[in-house]
Computed example of a mutant assay.
Amino acid sequence: MSSALLRPALVLGLMSCIGPFAIDMYLPALPGIAADLGASVQQMQGTITSYFLAFGLAQLVYGPWADQSGRKRPIYVGAVIFLIGTVVCAFAQTPGQLILGRAIQGFGGAAVMVVPRAIIRDMHTGPDATRMMAAIMLVISVSPMLAPLAGSGVMALTSWRGIFWMLAAATFVSLAMTRFLLPETLPPEARQPVNLSVLLSSARRLLTDRGFLALTFLGGFGMASFFVFIASASFVYSEAFGLSPTGFSLAFAVNAIGFFASSQMAAGLGMRFGARRVVAVATTGFMVSALVLFGLGLVGLAGLYVTVGGLFIANAFLGLVIPTTMVMALDEHGDIAGLASSLGGTLQMLAGGIMVALTGPFFDGTVVPMLAAIALCGVLAFTLSRLVPRHQAAAVPVA
């Protein structure tokens, strides 16, 4: 990757880590938090669902705002809101207070997800945008690999509350990077004042675009499989498989490596074979591997190593899907990239949050309900991949 792509990708990737760290870093602590606050498993899953739902809805605010005011101001405000939510979580005494703090975190954290995607669209399209998106995901990959281990380390030294104080410190670092290392990529002459009629017209344009909706929800159900895993894995791995917080963190990291390693190949494969073909093959692989793993769970063969290995394979297929579909969904809507990014992100996060909420009541502490929900996400993603119009392949052309 050229230096022109590497530096902004590094800055945006580090900035975007704040949101994933807020999810992954406290996962090893979930059973301990539940015991400390007297919370049920479903209430602890609610701390994740509330984050995702607030995160998704807030994107509808940050996207149009970023189109009107430029890209940096929404990041500043979002980071401050995230900081407030983090402090609420650190002082929480009841499950309800923790859920509230997580929702505030999600509302602020949305800014550092939706705005960087619009920044990428400001700077690049096509293969360069896919390379940059994949590079950002490579930087973000430190989150599922290191954040749970960092959370386990903090718990060994202090308590689960210390995790949130570390997140507060990381937020200050994000603010400094935005101030000193991130240029403004949307010049004043390209900014669009928020106009309700224009906003509704643009939203109607996106919501009636079959390609945009298919690609958005395709990626959304792929991400939903992660959300289900995140909401359930700490309890499955610690209670059903008997892992310690550190053991869970290592298993969680292995599950994530497949995704982020394969994501680095997405641009090259898209240029060689065409993005639509890559997405179609990869979603098929994701569905098949998820269904096989679910079948093994039904007959009692999904032990620890089978589960970790099966999810590694399934996530490797997803690593080819998500960065490519993100770029393809935005590529034809450069004039409203902020709105397209925010609306697409909202739909994806709502899909993931709703999936967690719907499957939560069926969770019984075993691996089977988690694998069933992931398999359902695979089937839905496969179905949507067949609805992507053929002309969308031009988003990442064959070399």
Score class of each variant (00 low, 15 high):
Y62N: 00
Q192W: 10
A373E: 05
L186I: 07
G101M: 08
L175F: 07
F312I: 04
S174G: 11
G46L: 11
M15V: 14
L12C: 06
M145E: 06
L206Y: 09
D36T: 10
V306E: 02
G46W: 09
L182G: 05
G78V: 07
V77Q: 09
L243Q: 09
Q105D: 14
M1V: 12
Q97Y: 13
V112W: 03
R272L: 08
G85S: 04
P8I: 01
V87Y: 10
F248H: 02
A373F: 07
F259Q: 03
L157H: 10
A280K: 11
F382C: 10
P245T: 05
S201D: 15
F363C: 03
I119Q: 00
P193R: 05
D36N: 13
T307V: 06
G96M: 12
F248Q: 00
V254T: 09
P389D: 08
G101A: 12
S152Q: 08
A170M: 15
G285L: 00
A340C: 03
T366F: 03
R161G: 02
G274R: 01
Q97V: 14
V236P: 01
L206E: 07
A256Y: 07
A118C: 07
L320M: 08
E239H: 15
S238R: 14
L14I: 11
A275I: 11
F317N: 01
A302Q: 02
L387D: 11
M349A: 15
V356C: 06
F317V: 04
H124P: 09
T246W: 13
W165N: 08
N195C: 15
L380F: 10
V80I: 11
R71I: 08
A103E: 03
I84V: 14
L213H: 06
S262G: 11
F164A: 09
F382P: 00
L213D: 07
